[in-house]
Design a protein around this nucleic acid. Structure first.
Lengths: 161, 161
DNA sequence: CACCAATCGTTAGTGGGACAAACGTTTATG
DNA sequence: CATAAACGTTTGTCCCACTAACGATTGGTG
């Protein structure tokens, strides 16, 4: 096999013009590249991106219930169960019933979890740098800004209080 | 249920600062919004995004084998089988054995397929417009440019000829 | 206080997307 | 002619987003 069996789904020879510059497609492709990149990087540290999200949330706001973590990280509470399980297995987090509200579990960051978080912080920083390699500082700012605005706009769906 | 059972995974109250501006996360979120938006829109027309990709490829370059379509659209050849099945069911495409190379199937766009493509073209255009609503023309250009460069950069992986 | 609604953690399941592996068939090449 | 490669297909894996339902618990209202 000279040419890789299937190339990394990058941009191919004769991609239809209509697809080539479709914004939603560009977003998907870029996100896919980003996901593969950070996914592979985090796998190095026996972690997935949700692990990082939970650890970061715990450090920044202290112990929390799973429901709270779900809101803070955007992880569905259904999926959070598995994430907490994995983190608990690795000793990065502790799950204990909440004495004051027995419906809840209190999730606490352990010392080992804090170490892991520090590790992931530096790892993530270098991965983001790889990801944005072709862009200079100003362009990185621009991209972050544009994406943030897109997201903010589309987050306003079915809003009620 | 006053507040939706689970909000659309948009940006939540107290998202950790570290996550808030992480480029890979912004990309994923924006892509997710985009995917949901166009996915829902295309569902209206009983289509998925890969349908559009295949139809566009066929119209722009004429009848092709599945392998060729795979290269042009970036769909894995394994997954393309189902896409072609769906398009064939709907009569948008015809699958016939290639007389000159009996390993291949020749996929041909039908009249009905061309109609559907036209429909999807206008539909897609309006969806892209919804997606980019918060950005002006110059910013849309910028975004497309930045994403294109990111993608181009990361497509160069394991290159050999 | 009794009742009902809401919240929480959890299990199970759906559907899409990206991808690997293997297989039978067919074509190209040394 | 033998072997390698290409093609279409099936099957299966992994991750992500999301829905539905349940048992246990708590809070609010009449």
């Amino acid at each position: 096999m000279t040419t890789s069996d299937m190339r990394h789904h990058g941009d191919d020879p004769a991609t239809p013009a209509r697809l080539r510059r479709t914004p939603s497609r560009l977003l998907s492709l870029a996100a896919a590249h980003a996901d593969r990149l950070v996914g592979a990087g985090l796998a190095t540290a026996d972690a997935r991106k949700w692990h990082y999200a939970v650890l970061a949330a715990l450090q920044e706001s202290g112990p929390a219930s799973q429901a709270t973590l779900s809101r803070r990280t955007g992880i569905y509470r259904s999926d959070l169960v598995a994430v907490i399980n994995e983190l608990a297995e690795r000793g990065h987090v502790e799950r204990a019933p909440d004495a004051t509200d027995r419906r809840r579990n209190v999730i606490t960051l352990t010392g080992k979890g804090r170490d892991q978080l520090n590790h992931l912080d530096t790892l993530l920083a270098s991965l983001q740098d790889d990801l944005l390699a072709p862009l200079d500082a100003a362009e990185r700012e621009q991209l972050a800004d544009l994406l943030t605005r897109l997201i903010a706009h589309h987050s306003r769906t079915t809003d009620d209080t």
